[in-house]
């Protein structure tokens, strides 16, 4: 018995990108802020492109704390939602072909969220990554870091607790 040939890389990539797209595209607020996600395997990097409407202090100028907090919360929810979806696709529990065709995967709900403003948000693009520190049946704890020019100098970080979406 020979092992079945692995699927072509392009087929796998397209399937994963389609699943991620379905997760992100369903949320109007993500489009409102212009946030995009860059995927490398299961790792996501969120990108907040600079826009004048994200400014809070026009004299500095600096990003609005609310724009920064929103960016971190979006990154945490999608990061956690994506890790759940990834596992379900890989284990075969979810058929990726069914995702996207009008069917949006359920996202986790925020219980609490603490944003720590480390530096002034500069008027340029920002990036963020989420780390799921714990993901149980009901609750999850997620940490997020956001940076601009220098990955080693984050300008904001956050920790939040989330209610896991019900299995479907």
């Amino acid at each position: 018995m020979s092992k079945p040939r692995p699927e072509p890389v392009q087929v796998i990539k397209e399937r994963r990108d389609r699943a991620l797209d379905a997760l992100v595209r369903g949320v109007p607020y993500i489009a409102f802020l212009g946030i995009a996600f860059d995927r490398r395997g299961d790792e996501l990097t969120a990108i907040l492109p600079y826009r004048e409407t994200h400014i809070g202090n026009p004299t500095l100028p600096a990003l609005h704390g609310g724009a920064t907090a929103s960016f971190l919360e979006v990154t945490a929810i999608i990061g956690l939602g994506w890790s759940i979806l990834w596992e379900r696709i890989e284990s075969g529990a979810v058929d990726p072909a069914a995702i996207g065709a009008g069917r949006i995967p359920a996202l986790p709900k925020t219980i609490d969220f603490t944003t720590d403003f480390l530096r002034t948000g500069l008027p340029r693009d920002a990036y963020a990554r989420a780390l799921v520190n714990r993901s149980g049946r009901r609750y999850a704890s997620v940490h997020v870091e956001a940076w601009q020019d220098n990955r080693a100098r984050p300008f904001a970080q956050a920790t939040g607790h989330f209610l896991m979406p019900a299995d479907d």
């Binding site: 609005h64 704390g65 609310g66 907090a69 929103s70 960016f71 919360e73 929810i77 969220f113």
Partner: peptide, 13 residues
């Protein structure tokens, strides 16, 4: 339902 991030922005402001 409004996104938590937008509620955060209102409360921060």
């Amino acid at each position: 339902v409004i996104h938590g991030g937008a509620v955060s922005a209102l409360m921060d402001t």
